[in-house]
Nucleic acid binder design. Sequence first.
DNA 1: CGCATCGGGGACCAACAGGTCCAGGAAAGG
DNA 2: CCTTTCCTGGACCTGTTGGTCCCCGATGCG
Lengths: 218, 218
Amino acid sequence: MSDEQVAAPTNRRRISQRGIATRERILEAANRLMFVRGVNATTLDDVREASQTSKSQLYHHFADKQELVRALVKYRGALVLQRERGGLERLRSFSGLVRWRNALVQANSLNNGRYGCGLGSMAVELSDQDEQARSMLLETFAAWEKLISDGLHRMRDSGALRQDADPEKLATGLMAALQGGYLLANAAHNVAPMEVALDMALEHIKSFLSQPSGEPTR
Amino acid sequence: MSDEQVAAPTNRRRISQRGIATRERILEAANRLMFVRGVNATTLDDVREASQTSKSQLYHHFADKQELVRALVKYRGALVLQRERGGLERLRSFSGLVRWRNALVQANSLNNGRYGCGLGSMAVELSDQDEQARSMLLETFAAWEKLISDGLHRMRDSGALRQDADPEKLATGLMAALQGGYLLANAAHNVAPMEVALDMALEHIKSFLSQPSGEPTR
DNA sequence: CGCATCGGGGACCAACAGGTCCAGGAAAGG
DNA sequence: CCTTTCCTGGACCTGTTGGTCCCCGATGCG
């Protein structure tokens, strides 16, 4: 999970191992807190306390709160993409997609649908507030969708998916269903809506399979 | 739009017409500001200024900020449901659903996908912060989905939709696609993802139509 | 070992947010 | 009208939050 340094340090002057560790600790704490409380509802004092650091360290590693938030966007994006790469990089069949769905649902069910998607909720909170954060999030979403569409491309090339399937649109649809599912599940404190949403998107992809393996209805 | 009093006044003591108007003015201003900046990023001073009122009036009509926010949740929910009732109450055919989709897309394209859904963004921001707001939002989503599923039920009863279609699940899926579409469109400052998401959901519903009218692919 | 940096602790500050108060003006209601 | 209640203006208070500062300790390097 937190191997190597997922957090890209702002290279400039020489930097010690201890410094990197502290920076990582701050980001990790900010990540945790802002995941459950939201970005704007988390204070720097909260982060300071949770990371067992002091004010000066926060400002030693980040110019201000906005920079910390931006670093967090990068950090979280890297984590999500890393995780998703694991589940999607070898995607070659519809059943692989189902496994991917199940993993997401299971993870989210651990907190009864609460908190939603780390990227999605930041996107909602920051898009109209920090242009730079928005564009980083946009890029991350694009990379995430590309992991999906690459998999769908492989399925199409191998003949599993029909030629008239559009991997990019299917990936966007699936991502929207995922994000919408996260949102509704969060409001409901219940994973069920997320399951329904993902199943809809998968059913839609299924309709582009070459051999209609299962019964197409229901 | 703002006919009658959408904002339910907290009936208790006798209340003058002027008082109602002021309360409405505050809610209207809070609605506008919090729609573009988000709830937590909007201060009471912002609201005070935008509504041309004073601090004492804010606290005369609302106990504190949390109460104002909760009133806004009600207010916005009523507005959305009112609007949606217009577009969904008479829904009886697939083309009606397409018209509904087009109206939402067009409205959102006016601001290039920005700001997202007034209810969805509040849900993200408040769900982990104000239990009461969350449950009101949950109810509103349920009512919204019911407008959709009622329409789908009518379509099923009239034979337009096959018997094996599940209106509730279809409505949830459509709602998730809508919310996810709003979210991605907001991050992208572009309506396109929302269109793709809604089209996916509509295509999915289309697959449950009795007579496959159009070409099913593409 | 001794200098130059880097890293850390925590007191301190200023601005701003939410929230209070009171005095005066407008509406009801008799 | 004239009393009572409601409504409004805006000054004021106070806790919190982001942000600064200074001094000391740790670390790396010749």
